[in-house]
């Protein structure tokens, strides 16, 4: 059993890398940017879902960390110069780790909907600060002209740079979710009271995954600065937090790769529909409504349970 699933995993990773690695062959900047966005947002969504789908913590404030990553790059490049792009990426990620660690002590004191509201409040607070502090952040103008340093300035090189970072990140998160630490996180979601009777601290585990998830959110934000060559206060707005929730729900929060698929679908809808009509968010709303009402397990979740039904010939509930 183990060997078979190892083979399947290898096949999946192989396919994933080959498909994304081949995109630059199209010599089409539009496809390249789209694939890059899917990669980065896919990682963001998968990391977010470690918090939400796995541990049961619905943060409505991951935009704060996404923005922190973006502004780490933006501010470094703006004030110190283009050579500081990578340093800015590192600084944003490090800052996110520190902020998440400290903020974790505040927001993880409460659970359920209160956690959600608190994270939203802190997210909006950070958004307001970047918005109002025009002198430093450029306010609503954002920061433009963020070209990555050296050969990373080349679109294709930067794309492969992102691909490698995303693949490593997602690989790490996948390992995490299958590890003893991942099992404890799922237990925290299902029955926190019992976790204490395993001799484990619930909040400490929640803080740990909050920090990990936020670090990857910041990495995503920093990488996006290089994809768009700009950053904007919108990165910190609640709509960003909302979007990553939608991606997870659309793809399926109980499958590891669900959120990645959800991210891909939403980014494609945004681009394809967005190019034709400004009502693309309406389309996304309709898609989400259909999904939640008819296919609550999400795209990947429904696919997995469909396969299971085919195999067993009868209806069988799927677990996580």
């Amino acid at each position: 059993m183990e060997a078979a699933s190892d083979k399947k995993a290898l096949l999946f990773w192989g396919l994933f890398l080959v498909v994304f690695a081949l995109v630059p062959i199209s010599r089409n900047d539009y496809y390249l940017a789209m694939a890059n966005r899917i990669l980065v947002w896919g990682m963001f969504a998968v990391a977010f879902n470690m918090l939400f789908g796995v541990t049961g913590m619905l943060s409505f404030g991951q935009a704060l960390f996404f923005g922190l990553g973006g502004y780490g790059v933006g501010l470094m490049v703006k004030y110190l110069g283009q050579a500081w792009f990578l340093a800015g990426l590192g600084a944003g990620v490090a800052a996110a780790a520190v902020v998440a660690y400290l903020l974790g002590y505040l927001v993880i004191r409460v659970s359920g909907v209160f956690f959600t509201i608190l994270t939203l409040a802190f997210g909006q607070l950070a958004w307001q600060i970047t918005f109002r502090w025009y002198r430093v952040t450029g306010g609503d103008d954002g920061i433009q002209g963020l070209v990555p340093t050296g050969i990373l300035g080349d679109h294709i090189v930067y794309y492969y740079f992102c691909l490698i970072l995303v693949a490593c990140s997602v690989w790490f998160l996948k390992r995490l979710s299958a590890s003893p630490q991942g099992l404890i996180l799922r237990c925290v979601r299902q029955n926190p009271a019992r976790v204490r009777f395993l001799g484990r601290r619930v909040r400490r585990n929640q803080r740990r995954i909050y920090v990990i998830s936020s670090v990857f959110a910041a990495l995503a934000g920093g990488l996006m600065a290089g994809v768009d060559n700009s950053i904007h206060t919108n990165m910190l707005n609640w709509t960003t937090s909302g979007e990553v929730i939608l991606m997870s729900v659309l793809g399926g929060i109980h499958q590891f790769f669900g959120p990645f698929i959800g991210a891909a679908v939403i980014k494609v809808i945004e681009d394809v529909v967005g190019a034709r009509t400004e009502y693309w968010s309406l389309i996304i709303g309709l898609v989400m409504m259909t999904m939640v009402l008819l296919f609550p397990r999400g795209l990947v979740g429904e696919w997995v349970s469909f396969k299971a039904r085919m195999r067993s010939g009868g209806a069988r509930k799927e677990g996580v």
Binding site: F172, R175, L176, A178, S179, P180, Q181, G182, L183, I184, C187, L198, G199, R200, R208
Partner: peptide, 18 residues
């Protein structure tokens, strides 16, 4: 198994499968 892993002090391990 999660109880056994907890007893053995492995529950912070993030990389290896169960």
């Amino acid at each position: 198994r999660v109880a056994c892993l907890s007893r053995a002090g492995h529950t912070r391990q993030p990389l290896k499968g169960l």
